[in-house]
Nucleic acid binder design. Structure first.
Length: 486
RNA sequence: GCGGAGUUAGUCUAGACCGGCAUGACGUCAGCUUCCCAAGCUGAAGGCCGCGGGUUCAAAUCCCGCACUCCGCACCA
């Protein structure tokens, strides 16, 4: 399977498609989820809640997507999330001002300097376009945040570039009112917005995208004091340090050998792997890659990317950043709010370990890793985990006549509220099975002539194509058993 | 943003060099038939050929601009 086949399936079966596609001014980097995509996404999120939020007793919030300017002054995004750029007047090529100046003149102007400083150096040293020798326009800041104007005065605010800022901002209230105790995870699912220069590859690089973020607030002096560590100490993760080889190690070994800095980090990396295993992504094709200093985000002191292998290369699904006290300290300074909490009768400013998950990319990977070409049976099917399948069960009449259609509809209405069921009478039965296979429906029940006599139906299993006959009265428990979360 | 290649129905696609009724397949829908794995038959719907402009009696086709998609570069918390 490859990217194009997934794309075609996504378009044909209602997983996702370009936004505003009927208009020619549609912008790149915006995609919509269709019915199958929404269903898959909701189930993925429910699994995330089960395996991370509830398992670790995290607090989940739902914050605003538009946040005030001060938030991003404090977070550093206004200065650090923007690149100083210069445009060649002649060939319109764009360069990073600081990098080009450093390269040509060896004068170092910091990235966050005032724009006039770049212009000054460019004029003094006669810096010209390396491609065409043209002169440059004045330097500009390209900020990846979308700015919005609030109210009639258009006061500056921004669409959040990451969901975690509301978690930091809300931390004092949550900690007080929810009886917080370190370490504590606060989680959020929602949209983030980044003005990417060149969005690419549908769900993989979007300007508006879903994140599932977890910020673990912890006492920096107690990073090896983790209650649940024994639960995961034998969980195997695949670590890549120094961009060399991927080494499968248990979490216990990783901490003891110093590959991971502490038990807290190991614990959450393990939860992540256990979660992804249950999504049906092949974790044997995954790695935690330790980032070098140049690659890390401006706020991170230690960072691991959880990456998976796909047909278009390694894909980052989760950024795991040890943000230390960077965020709470700066929000404390800018807002004057107190972020210290009492832990074992000592006042501490918590540190933060972050798991920032890209949902859209995860969903793409689920599709790709589960896309199966079954040449023997001339079919394509998605071997999705039954609890993630957009449709749990197809409800089919073998033929429409002889009262079978009516009986089928009767059975369908009995289960349609509880399961994602799909009713289908039209065409040959084999064709209807194939359609269900392509959206990954794990089960199909078929109503035939025998149903009218003894109230039994056949139930077909997607992966094996085998069928068994069960009583209608057992249908509910059978489907529940087959489609419930692990 | 730069360079390259593209954009024709839900999906894939012929036609473009050489301007003249937009082709085929799959899929979809209805009916017949069959009755447990994409069978067959009949019929139907679905396109301002990415958008805008220009040349022309006439543009999917030639020219210009733009948008989008893909590849490479750059960028990427």
């Amino acid at each position: 399977m490859n990217y194009d086949q997934i794309m075609q399936l996504a378009l044909e079966r209602g997983f996702y498609f370009p936004s505003c596609e009927i208009y020619s001014d549609a912008q790149a980097g915006f995609w919509e989820y269709g019915p199958s995509g929404v269903s898959l996404k909701s189930k993925f999120i429910e699994l995330w809640r089960r395996e991370l939020v509830r398992r670790d007793r995290m607090l989940e919030i739902d914050g605003s997507q538009i946040m005030s300017q001060s938030v991003f002054v404090a977070s550093g995004h206004l200065s650090s999330f923007a690149d100083p750029i210069i445009t060649c007047q002649k060939c319109r090529s764009i360069f990073r001002a600081d990098k080009l100046i450093a390269e040509i003149t060896s004068v170092v102007v910091p990235e966050s300097a005032e724009l006039e400083q770049f212009d000054k150096v460019i004029a003094e040293k006669d810096v010209r376009c390396p491609k065409c020798r043209g002169n440059f326009d004045n330097a500009k800041k390209f900020n990846m945040m979308f700015k919005v104007g609030i109210g009639p005065q258009s006061e500056a605010a921004y669409l959040r570039p990451e969901t975690c800022q509301s978690i930091f901002v809300d931390f004092p209230r949550l900690y007080k009112t929810m009886r917080g105790r370190l370490p504590i995870g606060i989680a959020q699912i929602g949209k983030s917005f980044r003005n990417e220069i060149s969005p690419r590859q549908s769900l993989l690089r979007l300007r508006e995208f879903y994140q599932a973020e977890i910020e673990v607030f912890c006492n920096p002096d107690k990073l090896n004091d983790i209650d649940g560590f024994s639960e995961i100490e034998n969980t195997e993760i695949r670590l890549m340090i120094d961009d060399t080889i991927i080494k499968p190690v248990t979490c216990k070994e990783a901490v003891e050998s110093g590959m991971l800095p502490n038990k807290l980090v190991a614990y959450y990396l393990a939860l992540l792997v256990e979660f992804y295993q249950k999504t049906g992504i092949d974790v044997n094709k995954s790695r935690f890659r330790k980032l070098g200093d140049k690659e890390k985000a401006f706020y991170a002191s230690v960072a691991f990317d959880f990456e998976v292998e796909t047909t278009i290369g390694w894909l980052e699904l989760v950024a795991c950043n040890y943000r230390s006290d960077y965020d709470l300290k700066s929000h404390g300074n800018v807002s004057k709010e107190k972020f210290e909490v009492l832990h074992d009768n000592v006042k501490v400013l918590p540190h933060v370990f972050e798991l920032s998950m890209g949902i859209d990319r995860s969903l793409y990977t689920i599709l790709e890793h589960n896309y199966k070409e079954d040449k023997d049976n001339d079919r394509i099917f998605l071997s999705l985990k039954p609890y993630l399948a957009p449709i749990h069960v197809g409800v089919l009449s073998l033929v429409k006549k002889d009262g079978l259609a009516e009986k089928t509809e009767e059975i369908f209405s009995k289960i349609k509220r509880k399961y994602d069921a799909f009713l289908d009478h039209s065409g040959a039965i084999g064709r209807r099975y194939r359609r269900l296979d392509e959206v990954g429906a794990p089960l199909a029940i078929t109503i035939d002539h025998q149903t009218l006599q003894d109230d039994t139906v056949t139930i077909r299993i997607r992966d094996s194509m085998e069928q068994e006959r069960i009583k209608i009265s057992d249908l509910d428990s059978h489907i529940t058993k087959a489609t419930s979360y692990p």
